[in-house]
Amino acid sequence: MNNQGTFMMPPAESTLAHEVDALYYFIYYVSLFFFVLIVACSLYFVLRFRRKGKQVERTPDISHNTFLEILWTVVPTVILAIIFVWGFRGYLKLTIVPKDALQIKVTGQRWFWSFDYPEGVNSLNDMVVPVGKPIALLMSSQDVIHSFFVPAFRIKQDVLPNRYTQAWFEAKNVGEYDLLCAEFCGTQHSSMLGKVRVVSTQDYNRWLEEAVGSLGAGMPLKDLGEKLYTSKQCFTCHSLDGTKIQGPSFKGRFGSEAVFTDGSKRTVDENYLRESILNPQAKVVAGYLPVMPTYQSLLKEREVDALVEFIKSLKP
């Protein structure tokens, strides 16, 4: 059963989300109380004691009231202490990863998310997880800092280039939840979006089996390449219709002449395509920025062949 969330908070879909929301709403109502108190008192005072007429009058010297001063020092201190302890306990729960969790390696890269499963399966921007199981995320970045943020799970953790960070969650319901990058990472920061697809255990096992089985075997290279074009996010930077995005369009690319930033030229052939996939900075086409990440660790040999074959098939 999906809940709809509240006016302030999105649906609470992880086991800890409700605890976060409870503290959020505790602070919310305490704040509302003090806010109303401050505004009501101020309004009452300014209306009740407003200056009437032009005559200048003396006002009483009321500059201390020991009882009140102790009251408004102690009461906020106590409330803040409660909030501090509550917040810290919640933080421990959010950050200490349970031992029996299923571990997924998360890699942030400009501008997509890559997930590696213990079974050797890799997926991009589409994290499939079983419902009702704790999932541990071991995260690192290939370039700048990103931040893994799933609002429905109330988790957020920066993803760093030089060390691992961790996060975990346990999804309560089957469904699809937004994954956002929360740390500014450049041009397409706001398109560094993914999905967390929570499925039943059977569906998860079936998905995994399928993914392990068909790591591309049996499929014609061109079709596999077409599939990879979408699943490996090539489309975010390379169009099929000639449109210039972050990188050159694939349309009619093969066989054409490429001009590079250093002024040199060469014909686009298989070897050039292969190099550009595995070592994109080696030759950067003039008019584009050197922003493409390497796919060295993300593609298998056959998958590189498949992509080359697919690009070859795209006639001008």
Partner: peptide, 8 residues
Amino acid sequence: GALAVDVH
């Protein structure tokens, strides 16, 4: 300032 809420 509240840790658990700040994460979100």
